[in-house]
């Protein structure tokens, strides 16, 4: 990867190095893959508890999926068509002894040993909610379903921007229901999340957004998504004010997932879905950037909301 010296890359590099120096992130040798310190994790845990508390009155179903999903279910989505460059596919060795010897010889010779591997039944979860839709086939209850999810997700986009990790956590609330229920969910949380983030001192800005669809065809998809106002993000400067980072997104999928997985409302129509997601590492990074590296020294109001005092 080419690391340029433009001011944005420089700001990313500086903030990343400051996080390493403070011990908040631990380098792995791969851009976007880091260990997290106890202090970093504590902030994430506290923020998650805050999210749980603010969603409690809605009585969501809590479901936890592992950070991998079934390849067969993944293939039913159009992720490979729209984000092939972000995919993480899990491969392993399924050969016999002779194949193993060939594999090890390649490794020892410094050759590409991964060609001796075979695809497994799983891929890395591209978003916390992807594993949910295939399990929701059938008819929804009258008021739809509201699901609370959190998971590590993977996106292959190595970057020196500390806020663009390859492996990170996403805390989501997903609504499956009528078009009105799905839209109301998205708009409710968009407002609620803005208030929640303001309450911890993060002055976010609401913007119409698009997903990073692959290639030039992806530009058509992105333009369509923006025209239809399907995705909103709350963004804030993290490493640099020149390029703010989205720390929350609110997405209305219409019948995109429901059509594929046969999710229906009680009146027999195809359901609509919406998901909202808090980018947990990004929120922690925004908090550290805004209030400093010592949570005990953060403003009292912020510490109170996060249960730090």
């Amino acid at each position: 990867m080419c690391i340029s010296d433009d001011p944005i890359s420089q700001a990313h590099k500086e903030y990343l190095e400051a996080l390493f120096d403070a011990g908040l992130l631990i380098p792995s040798g791969v851009d976007g893959v880091y260990g997290r310190s106890g202090v970093f994790e504590d902030v994430i845990e506290r923020f998650e508890r805050y999210v749980t508390k603010m969603g409690q009155h809605l009585d969501p179903e809590v479901i936890r999926f592992p950070p991998v999903m079934a390849r067969q279910q993944y293939e039913c989505t159009d992720h490979l068509a729209t984000f092939p460059d972000l995919l993480g596919s899990v491969h392993s060795f399924t050969g016999k002894e002779r194949d193993h010897i060939a594999l090890m010889s390649k490794k020892e010779a410094g050759e590409d040993w991964t060609s001796c591997l075979q695809a497994t039944e799983v891929v890395l979860a591209p978003a916390a909610c992807y594993a949910l839709y295939p399990t929701a086939t059938g008819v929804l209850p009258e008021h739809g379903r509201l699901i609370d999810l959190t998971s590590f997700v993977f996106r292959h986009e190595p970057s020196i921007d500390p806020a663009r990790m390859q492996s990170f956590r996403m805390r989501e609330y997903v609504k499956l229901g009528s078009p009105e229920q799905a839209l109301a969910h998205r708009d409710y949380w968009l407002q609620r999340a803005e208030e929640m983030l303001n309450a911890v001192g993060l002055k976010v800005k609401k913007v119409v957004a698009n997903d990073p669809f692959f290639g030039r065809g992806g530009r058509v998809m992105a333009a369509t998504q923006r025209e239809q106002h399907l995705k909103y993000e709350l963004e804030i400067p993290i490493a640099t004010g020149d390029k703010p980072t989205a720390i929350f997104s609110a997405n209305y999928h219409m019948d995109h997932f429901s059509k594929t997985f046969g999710i229906k409302t009680m009146d027999g129509n195809t359901a609509h879905t919406a998901c909202v997601g808090f980018g947990l590492e990004r929120i922690a990074l925004a908090l550290f950037k805004t209030h400093g590296f010592e949570p005990q020294e953060w403003p009292e109001g912020v510490r109170k909301v996060l249960g730090l005092c």
């Binding site: 159009d78 068509a81 729209t82 669809f213 290639g215 030039r216 065809g217 058509v220 998809m221 369509t224």
Partner: peptide, 9 residues
Amino acid sequence: TSLATVSVM
């Protein structure tokens, strides 16, 4: 579809 748009393009 979006993907077919790419093929057409």
